[in-house]
Amino acid sequence: MALRIQGLTKRFGGLTSLSEFNLELGERDIQGIIGPNGAGKTTTFNVITGVYQPDQGQILLEDRDLTGLPPDVIARAGIARTFQNVRLFKDMTVLDNIAMAFHARIGHTLWGAIFRTGNFKRQEARVRAESLEHLARFGLADRSQEWAGSLPYGEQRRLEIARALATDPRVLLLDEPAAGMNPSEVDELIRLIRQVHQDFPLAILLIEHQIPVVMELCGHVQVLDFGQTIANGAPREVVNNPLVIEAYLGEEEVAE
């Protein structure tokens, strides 16, 4: 089991954003979390990655208990994520964005950095070479010296996924990867996620609003509404579940 979550609960004041959330993500699974706005999907990711401390529950990555650990430790343990609104280091080069992610693998020493030891220089050269290689896998090698913020939107998404993968994760969390994409970009994204799943030894958990993406990719879907899991199962069953339809129709009324 790549990721096992039991009874995860997060409260903000009187509001329970996430209640008794459970998840069993197998080594090579692709699973989805769907639900209307404010259902607690992104909160789930924030608790898993250590941005928020859970009030109850347990998070196990390959049987290692990560509950309550700081975000950088969780990242090094093997959980990577992307954001709904792409969060790159916009004023840094594409290459430096990837190089940052290599921190998760190598861990550096302060002395090495300040005194430029030979070992340290070799390590830095290796990071550059591997970063370039990594970019090439995502068709971004020729962009390596451009500012990340200057890339077109689709490539920014791709870079963010590439950066997450450069941390060498066991579990990849994708927060609405198709947000703001047109249908042809969505098709390309689906191909990319499939490719990633094939090429890297990891499990994927994704939050998505676009139901077709979930139908295409996920073997299992969990539906959240007001922090509660209201449905759980194969995508085709879940989208026909009356509770789910009601939750989404409820959202329609308040949509702009």
């Binding site: 950088d72 954001f83 280091f89 916009k90 840094m92 430096d96 921190h103 998760a104 950095a113």
Partner: peptide, 23 residues
């Protein structure tokens, strides 16, 4: 250097830096 890259990254978008495994 990588430490310098991390410093620039903190200046650029501190919220993402821990997700890169950086303290």
């Amino acid at each position: 250097t990588l430490v310098g890259t991390a410093m620039r990254a903190v200046a650029d978008n501190a919220s993402v830096v821990p997700l890169m495994g950086v303290n």
